[in-house]
Amino acid sequence: MHNIFVYCEIEDGQIAEVSLELLSKGRFLANRLKCKLEAVVLGDKLDNIGKQIMPYGADVIHIADDKRLYPYMTLPHSAIVKGIFEEEKPQIGLFGATSIGRDLAPRIASALKCGLTADCTALEIGNHTENKTKKEYRDLLYQIRPAFGGNIIATIINPDTRPQLATVREGVMKKEMLSPDHKGVVKNVDPGKWLKDEDFVIRIIERHIESRKVNIKNAGIIVSGGYGVGSRENFQLLYDLAGVLGGEVAGSRAAVDGGFIDHERQVGQTGVTVRPKLYIACGISGQIQHRAGMDQSAIIISINNDPDAPINQIADYTIIGDLTEIIPKMIKYYQKNTK
């Protein structure tokens, strides 16, 4: 009772990266709250899944192994997760902010009439005093996320309802193995207990699960452009620089919305979170939503014609000027000095 639960996603028989990241964070929070960390895994042929999860610190693993549970479908998964949560009464439930987690978590929150915060960029434990009633709450989950187009950072709490649910995007939390020898208890869940025939009214006819063509997440060098790049044509300069430096090209949401670059290359709260050793931000103003996806970069260079662009304040180097002039010079002097 009152433990932390992580819903683990399965991809090709493997636990998804985001789920391992959430287990790592969950372990940290469980230590802080002196409670247990429990994982929930639903799928087919899950014989080896416990071994993948335990090193990340799960004390209990609930496994529902049934061929009807893979691939993911909303109704059967929500029926089982809801059933487990009603029995186990977690204080916190964490989901990946993925196609699956963002489909599933709201249904659970609605069914259990509890609070859910999407796309958190930080999770902390803290106390709260209600202003009006002076009622004290101890050890709440602070669910921290940018809101309102990234102009504010909101700390959301669920004082009175449990579980406190949150989704977190892949790459936001750090994946940290606790110990290869950590052992947890496996509890086999009988899915039949909660499933009804009506839960299978949706039929999956076809799936093409394409592995990501572009992998900006693991790139060591990222040349990223914002709305200030101005056009799809100017973005070619960024590709040129990335090509020379051996990096990938990314963009801000404004650049994606502007049609300069595809969504799969978007960095930020609603895109991918990156931690390269070098992040070159070209014509990016630096809204907090964008910063949330890149501020862990080791070195940040901002190229901007606006000396007051907010991104300059987190940049290690700020170059003020026209990027169509600066980027070719960077290429030129890189090549000159590496030959």
Partner: peptide
Amino acid sequence: PTKVRKIE
């Protein structure tokens, strides 16, 4: 159920 504790 969700309350805004703080806005920065």
